[in-house]
Nucleic acid binder design. Structure first.
Ligand SMILES: [Mn+2]
Ligand SMILES: [Mn+2]
Ligand SMILES: [Mn+2]
Ligand SMILES: [Mn+2]
Lengths: 219, 219
DNA sequence: AATAAATTTTAGACAAATCTAAATTTATTC
DNA sequence: GAATAAATTTAGATTTGTCTAAAATTTATT
């Protein structure tokens, strides 16, 4: 099924607002999309007729299975494009959202999958949010970025936030890879850089920028 | 000025149809965009009110200076995205047009310029059409692709069609660069490969694929 | 020059997406 | 348990882009 950009924006908004599986309100979507409550009601009728939401007048609504599946496709596109912009085109992570809000509506499954491949199948976007794979599966956030570990906490590297070639070069040089065990020995408040011990041996310093891109399963 | 995707499609269509500076007809645009003549007339009123076309009822129309400038921005985007798709994401040159027809409407000057930089400022798209630079200037086709030279013709390499890293690697290895003089010694009809003499010395074979991507100023 | 044919424009309608204002339903408060 | 407030839906309009059919204009052909 193909959807208009407007429909996709509503689907995405509802998805984000129902995180916990609860019902979503008309006003919440209106506020989120900076539109009127009346417009939301109009669109809900349409999404209901297209069988993407369960909706009863005045009672609230939520995406059904098909609706969630659709939302994940849009979110996948949004976050892959953000990764491309930051990673490949060197945009700052704070200037990509608007552009990705346009790019997420480009219709071509092949494009998205090729982009994913080109980017090296990143698990998280530049803001740390998980990127659904081509089956709509997202890494649950049982992992945290290294940057969020406290002193003396330890874990194992489980994913790369956004594998640019520059990042991969750095990791190769420092011999860091998926599965590497590490423990935080010190955090310098000046620049948030961390001193970490790797595989109980080597001790070295990691920038905050790098720490944000290393995802960890705590131990 | 910002324009809708529909407006941009009309502007681009008119641009292509007036190549020689002549007036364009309603039916020509209708055929080109697979729409009705009535729709074209409606849109022309709008483009006239936005001062992009000169148009007199029943007499035909053409883009004015501002209209052409706008058209070149859209064409620049279309051809850069095509280059990206073929070059970076490994699409075939015959499967990128539809996707570029969507991508050309993404609004962000910075995105286009960064994409151009990332691609290495290609002069021609994967179909051999010239890509306008950020000032709207296009390489006039006084140069031809090497693939179009006949036997015994000679010239100097003046531009790369689409500088992918794979192409650059090949050129570096063979020591071919901008300014290199060459003459076509032989063309094998079997695969269109060419035997060329470089700087009056080295003799070697070049595939048709490569020849299409080397642009030449004839001598 | 008159008529026929082709082209173009206008008239009127429709779907998508939005809005404001009024009506309806649900939630809160006394 | 009314009365009031808040949230939601409906009614009616508007803009954009499209369509078909009819009218107007230009071009071609007797
Ligand atoms: Mn969007
Ligand atoms: Mn993001
Ligand atoms: Mn287009
Ligand atoms: Mn092209």
């Amino acid at each position: 099924m193909l959807f208009t950009a407007a429909e996709e924006n509503y689907i995405k908004s509802i998805f984000h607002l129902q995180e916990d599986g609860s019902l979503v309100s008309t006003n919440a979507v209106a506020a989120n999309l900076h539109t009127s409550a009346a417009s939301v009601t109009d669109m809900l009728k349409k999404l209901k007729s297209k069988k993407l939401v369960s909706y009863e007048k005045y009672k609230g609504f939520k995406l059904n299975t098909e609706g969630k599946k659709t939302a994940l496709i849009i979110i996948r596109k949004h976050r892959l494009w953000e990764s491309f912009l930051v990673n490949t085109l060197q945009f700052g992570w704070d200037e990509v959202h608007e552009i990705a809000d346009q790019l997420e509506h480009i219709q071509s499954k092949k494009l998205v999958d090729k982009l994913d491949e080109f980017l090296g199948y990143p698990k998280f976007d530049p803001h740390g949010d998980p990127i659904p794979d081509s089956n709509g599966k997202m890494h649950e956030q049982i992992q945290t970025s290294l940057a969020e570990l406290a002193i003396h906490e330890s874990g194992e590297i489980s994913a790369l936030g956004n594998p640019s070639s520059a990042l991969l070069e750095l990791l190769q040089h420092k011999q860091i890879q998926i599965g590497t065990n590490l423990i935080v020995e010190k955090i310098f408040s000046f620049d948030q850089s961390m001193e970490i011990k790797m595989n109980n041996e080597l001790l070295f310093t990691i920038s905050h920028e790098l720490a944000k891109n290393l995802f960890i399963k705590k131990r």
